[in-house]
Design a protein around this nucleic acid. Structure first.
Length: 642
DNA sequence: TTAGGGTTAG
């Protein structure tokens, strides 16, 4: 069962999703309140707060729970909040009208008092009266408050009146409207337990509200309930949910949503398919995307250029060029022409893979094909030329850009500045950025960040911080990248206390912590390493491959080689998936700490786990062996040439 | 309504 599904079932039902609760006979004792409060989705603290702070209200509506005698208290004050009106002599009909009126005007206290007075009529008040109270209160624009929630919880707890389907619908709707999804799930669980089923409209509205509130986990919970009930969410909701899940890196969940609907024979079309294809291809799951692609194609549904382009992107990203070219041909065989985006993807990955000469041929090729390159395509090529410091080619391309009627944008400035910085030409970069600004070219926060980097690399981090604090005044909001650049600057200047002060001035992310962790690990500072790890845990920051690589370095440097090996094993087994850099850092640190033989074993282990050592890996090992005039001969190498 | 670009940490 899917994780989202199982997590929902645990709180919504307390049993498996397929076992629908039988309708509960009227008058049967309700589920104990404390047991309900222990259920995961209804926070203990909320319940405790309600029980403590709002007892007065609930004791009025359910006096038996609080040993409250209604007959002796027709006129009295509640919590010193003023006198309630005397209505003891009114008829039941009058009381009903009065109660609705008080509820509608938002005076819950008076409404509850009137409700209590209805007890003077035999068999009254009824569940319909309760529903009328809630309905009148909410219909007139009053928000579903904690007070009303407590009243409803008490009502469900009490054995006096059994809530009906309308009661549950009213409560869930009201809670959803104010975004209290946690309590809504709790009440939904009670609804199921009482034998009532939510309507499609209720769940659909709830799902939409969750999506609009960016509550992805709650959205998946509601989606699971809808699936369980055989309700198909609306197409806009499904599309929006899939897009949001994909954008937030929850690709598995997005795929789950899509495939669950597909399994039920429900396919909305390519506008639902494409976000999934792109998310899969961007996250390195191109073959899963390929399977999905052909599954849909087999049904005879037309696929658009965007779908093909996603697969081209995935294959290029994974370095599977033959598959990428084959797919471009496949697209053309299907009567579709590569789009501007398809070409951009090809140009991008040609550049990334060091094939800039081929990339340079694309602008004219695209013109020939009737698909003129835009500034974005030119910027990609400019970036690669800038990284290679090919000044002449940059000038030629800039001339071409201008001749085509384009004007350099902030991206153009960033790729050129970034290239200068990467080439170590900090002074040139500063000059270029200042000229750009004075000439009025567009700049943005990324350009600003490059300038901050320039200052930091010149040991002018304090000045960079001063500039950052004034960025807002210049119309730019500093991003986390801006703060992380400054953090890195302070670390490089060994100004730890300044780094910590800054860390408390924004919402740090995993990069922020990795920045300080990296510095502490190089310094072998156990105290700071532990402090950072502790803060990461407390702030719910998940370790990524950078974190792990830092820790591998640290463990080797403080002589904890066996712990380092354990960490490496754990990474291979459970992730985050190590990269060639992780591998090489381990080899380098092990060799430097006198564990050359262990490094050889690690080399073999990684090679046998499907990691291809690169030139740097061989270089590290060869140098380590050369120090004792020995030759590095890995088993895999010997086997290959034996 | 869907898709492509720059700046931070190992």
């Amino acid at each position: 069962m899917n994780a989202h599904c199982s997590s929902f079932c645990s709180y919504a039902h307390g049993s498996s999703p397929s076992s629908r609760a039988p309708r509960q006979p009227s008058g049967l004792k309700r589920q104990p309140f404390l047991l309900l409060a222990a259920m995961p989705l209804c926070s203990d603290s909320v319940i405790r707060f309600c029980r403590r702070g709002l007892r007065t209200y609930s004791s009025v509506i359910f006096p038996k729970l609080a040993s409250f005698s209604s007959s002796s208290c027709a006129l009295q004050t509640i919590d010193g909040g003023g006198e309630v009106e005397s209505t003891v002599s009114s008829s039941y009909d009058d009381l009903q009208r009065g109660m609705r009126g008080h509820a509608a005007s938002g005076d819950l206290r008076q409404a509850l008092w009137t409700w209590n007075l209805m007890r003077n009529s035999p068999g009254k008040p009824t569940v319909n009266d309760f529903n009328a109270l809630v309905h009148s209160y909410l219909k007139c624009g009053n928000r579903f408050s904690d007070v009303l929630l407590e009243v409803c919880l008490r009502m469900m707890e009490s054995s006096e009146i059994a809530p009906n389907a309308i009661t549950f619908n009213l409560i869930v709707n009201g809670l959803v409207a104010v975004g209290n999804f946690r309590a809504a799930f709790f009440v939904l669980g009670q609804m199921f337990t009482s034998g009532f089923l939510p309507s499609f409209t209720l769940l659909s509205r709830w799902l939409k509200k969750c999506i609009e509130s960016n509550s992805l986990t709650d959205s998946l919970g509601v989606f699971d309930v809808m699936l369980m009930m055989d309700y198909v969410p609306t197409e806009p909701s499904v599309n929006m949910l899939i897009c949001m899940l994909s954008k937030n890196g929850m690709v598995k969940a997005a795929y789950y949503v899509f495939s669950s609907l597909l399994a039920k024979g429900c396919f909305f079309g390519v506008y639902t398919l494409n976000p999934i294809l792109w998310a899969l291809c961007k996250s390195g799951k191109t073959y899963t995307a390929l399977q999905l692609f052909y599954l849909i194609k087999k049904t005879g549904l037309g696929l658009y250029v965007c779908s093909y382009t996603a697969l081209v992107y995935g294959f290029c990203k994974e370095g599977l060029w033959e598959d990428a070219w084959w797919f471009v041909d496949e697209m053309q065989d299907s009567g579709l022409k590569p789009s501007l985006v398809t070409y951009t993807v090809l140009v991008k990955f040609l550049c990334v893979n060091g094939r800039v000469e081929e990339a340079l041929r694309y602008p004219s090729l695209m013109e020939t094909e009737g698909c003129s390159p835009d500034l974005l395509v030119y910027n990609i090529i400019l970036q690669e030329l800038s990284h290679l410091d090919r000044v002449f080619d940059i000038t030629v391309l800039l001339d071409m850009i201008v001749s085509k009627g384009y004007s350099p944008d902030a991206y153009t400035v960033a790729v050129l500045g970034g290239g200068l910085l990467k080439a170590g030409r900090v002074g040139d970069c500063v000059g270029f950025l200042l000229d750009t600004i004075s000439e009025g070219y567009p700049i943005d926060v990324a350009v600003y960040n490059i300038y901050l980097q320039c200052l930091c690399s010149q040991s002018r981090t304090t000045e960079a911080l001063y500039l950052l604090e004034r960025m807002t005044g210049a119309g730019f909001n500093p991003s986390n990248v801006s703060y992380n650049i400054i953090l890195n600057g302070f670390c490089r200047e060994n100004k730890f206390s300044k780094a910590v002060t800054l860390l408390n001035q924004f919402l740090p992310d995993v990069v922020s912590f990795n920045t300080i962790l990296s510095w502490a690990c190089r310094q072998r500072s156990s105290e700071i390493v532990e402090w950072i790890l502790c803060r990461m845990q407390n702030e719910g920051i998940t370790h990524d491959v950078f974190t792990s690589t830092c820790l591998i370095r640290y463990l080797c440097r403080v002589g904890k080689v066996s712990e380092c090996l354990k960490l490496l094993d754990n990474l291979l087994l459970n992730g985050p998936k190590p990269t060639i850099v992780t591998f090489n850092v381990a080899l380098h640190e092990l060799c430097n700490s006198g564990s050359r033989e262990i490094a050889s074993q690690v080399f073999e282990k990684f090679s046998n786990s499907g990691f291809l050592p690169n030139a740097a890996s061989y270089d590290i090992m060869s140098r380590a062996y050369a120090r004792t005039h020995a030759t590095f001969a890995p088993v895999s190498f010997v086997k290959g040439y034996g």
